[in-house]
Write a protein that binds this DNA or RNA. Structure first.
Ligand SMILES: [Zn+2]
Ligand SMILES: [Zn+2]
Ligand SMILES: [Zn+2]
Ligand SMILES: [Zn+2]
Lengths: 163, 163
DNA sequence: GCAAAATTTGAAACATTATAACATTTGCAG
DNA sequence: CTGCAAATGTTATAATGTTTCAAATTTTGC
């Protein structure tokens, strides 16, 4: 819930992870939700980088932990984490990423670099406002928004092939 | 490429379909693309309603046509139709829907009714503008936008359970 | 503490969506 | 006609996600 690093550039990512885990514990406590070991481990795995991770990638990591897990284990953990706003699903990639605005009420907008795979989550109130306007212009009552932008991140525009 | 019907309400849908097919023929001719029988049939099936259709739904329809099709047949036809801007894939549903702005350069925004399943495609320039602004504020160069809004259409707000 | 209830996890099978690889056919240019 | 490229057929397989029921764990009421 403090200032966020820019995923596209090298940074102390361990700080991202431990911040995310700390935030998650706080949030779950506030919501009387149980952040069990499996759930916490899945969150940690999702946060292993700023590139979205597929459910089966998580599963593989759990297995190499020695944990004999099946797909429902992962999907259940991911459902829980989504429900409590700790991870987001990127529909265009069938993959999951840690929320960088956990605890804040927000509608995520995701900038997905097609070259390096990193994803930046933004909150863009002006976008949300225009979306709401467009929807209500049609009499439509919006509930959930999926907004994913694929393109090139600053770094991949200037140094193709990094990472 | 004329005025569009509102999917949420009863309308002469045959007119939607024949308009879509006519437009498709024109567009493919202009682009020197071959709208083969299979591709045209898949487009017609996709247009059978304003509810997105899964690839395997299309496959099943083809089969009941007596056409002995396999998944690649459908996915190839859908790829072709997408490439030529005749259908869109709805990422949040893993399903496909006919483009109502074929031939116009546009970025679709989809209003998806979670009750009746109908989808309205909009072009919202203000939304696109704000998205571009938000992206360039991060130095990001956007290429493709996925914008899908789930919620309740006007009809399902007032008459729950129709259709 | 202790038994009943609710939540969480384990495990096996299955369902759905999508692609890979290679053979065959079709349309078209020369 | 003939040869080439595009399109389709065919089979198999990969990737993603769900259902179902049993077992274990945690919470709750007493
Ligand atoms: Zn980081
Ligand atoms: Zn990048
Ligand atoms: Zn219609
Ligand atoms: Zn509706």
């Amino acid at each position: 819930m403090s200032a966020r690093a820019i995923p596209y550039r090298p940074h102390n990512h361990d700080a991202c992870v431990s911040q995310a885990l700390t935030d998650a514990r706080t949030i779950c406590q506030r919501q009387n939700a149980r952040l069990t070991p499996i759930r916490e481990r899945v969150l940690e795995l999702i946060w292993q980088s700023h590139k979205p991770l597929g459910a089966y990638d998580v599963l593989a990591e759990l297995s190499s932990d020695g944990h004999n897990a099946a797909p429902p284990t992962v999907y259940r953990a991911l459902d829980f984490l989504q429900q409590h706003g700790l991870v987001h699903r990127i529909a265009s990639l069938n993959a999951f990423i840690g929320c960088t605005h956990a605890g804040e009420s927000h509608t995520g907008m995701f900038l997905i670099c097609r070259a390096c795979g990193n994803v930046l989550e933004l909150t863009a109130p002006e976008v949300s406002t225009e979306v709401r306007k467009a929807a209500s212009g049609e009499g439509f009552r919006p509930e959930t928004t999926t907004l994913e932008i694929a393109g090139l991140c600053p770094r991949c525009q200037s140094e193709p092939g990094h990472d």
